[in-house]
Nucleic acid binder design. Structure first.
Lengths: 212, 212
DNA sequence: AATCATTTCTGACTACAGTCATATTATGCG
DNA sequence: CGCATAATATGACTGTAGTCAGAAATGATT
């Protein structure tokens, strides 16, 4: 079947690249390029799917063979970039810093990433958590896992705290970040304030038992 | 000006009800009724705005004088019900129970509320946090405040914990709940599991210093 | 190289959310 | 009352996302 999935050909040479496969890949690439260009230049709502199809030099119908909706196009374009960006962010963490500081570093960089284009990020995040037309489930899960993984590492390395599961704590941290994000992107709440609040919340969450 | 705001007439009698005001209120009511009925019976996407306008016996154009989009209609219909429901839930809390248990009682009841119609709740929650066509800001804020308030009370009454601000903790709790909710509504994650996870997270958040 | 089956493409088409110029209705005032 | 002005209502209209029946391309088989 393989119903239109653009599958990676792992083998390098000629065992069977096939004209079909190549055409699909090429079209997929043209679509992604055209979509990114137009969404970034004109914005999401000012861009029509017809424009994208024309720019990618394919028919309107064909476009919706590769993406299930206009929103899905957006996810298609940015999922890789986001994943890569997330991995970068976790790769270059300040060595010697508290868990709260490390997490804030991560989240602040993510906020910077989303600041590039607020309209696009709004729709993107909406789609990531509440997909209107599903698909890309695997991709989204991959992104989530990368983030959860990174956060879990931070917790494990920096929070000496037998009383609770690092994975659970990492998820909590992400939930707090996500909420701060939508507070900012959804209603126009001041990002500075949102981040300040997030810091307090993380501090409460990770509260290293200041006991005595 | 008063550009179409349906304003509450506080005074009871005849000082100036005015034909205009009465007509508007009546139409507003017809719209809300028609919308609720149709959305609940046929679902959101299967219902057209034309059907709603017909059922409310008004023109298409008129409908969009009262709501700025189809999604906004949904919010218009359910905001009051949600607010009332939220207040009810906080009003009848188990007196003697831990903060975690009290919160879980609250959140479980909210989940039950949303279980009535998952499609509608999906779209509703989407709209509440990331309004596509803004408006209703006041209503949404009112709902949020009611929930934050209730949660803050729970924290204040049941968490003896100088080290952190009850308001901040309440917000964190809500963020965790919200994340559980979208994990369930957004992707079809098992609500039972989501709630079990939420309980763990709340426990981590509220962790009454089990010190010594 | 001719035939067939299957996958992929296509643009004319449909359905519908939301707009807008015009019509209707209310209210205030002389 | 009758006129003027503002508020509200209306449905024909528009733009566009997404569909679908058929066309074209590919690859397999002989």
């Amino acid at each position: 079947m393989e119903s239109l999935e653009v599958r990676e050909r792992v083998t390098s040479d000629q065992p069977k690249p096939g004209r079909r496969e190549r055409n699909k890949l090429e079209k997929q690439a043209r679509i992604v390029d055209a979509t990114r260009e137009l969404f970034q230049r004109q914005g999401f709502s000012e861009t029509t799917t017809l424009q994208i199809a024309d720019a990618a030099d394919i028919g309107t119908g064909t476009l919706f063979l590769y993406a299930s909706s206009k929103e899905d196009l957006l996810v298609m374009v940015f999922k890789d970039e986001m994943l890569e960006s997330a991995r970068d962010i976790f790769a270059q963490l300040p060595e010697r810093a508290s868990a709260v500081d490390q997490m804030m570093t991560v989240f602040e960089k993510m906020v910077v990433y989303h600041s590039r284009d607020i309209e696009l990020s709004r729709i993107l995040l909406r789609e990531l958590v509440m997909p209107s037309s599903s698909g890309r489930h695997g991709d989204i899960a991959e992104l989530m896992d990368a983030i959860y993984g990174g956060l879990t590492d931070i917790v494990r390395r920096n929070v000496a705290n037998g009383s609770c599961d690092p994975e659970v704590t990492a998820r909590s941290a992400f939930a707090l970040y996500y909420f701060a994000l939508i507070t900012w992107l959804g209603r126009g709440f001041d990002p500075e304030l949102a981040m300040a609040q997030l810091r307090k919340q993380l501090f409460g969450l990770l509260r290293v038992e200041v006991s005595l």
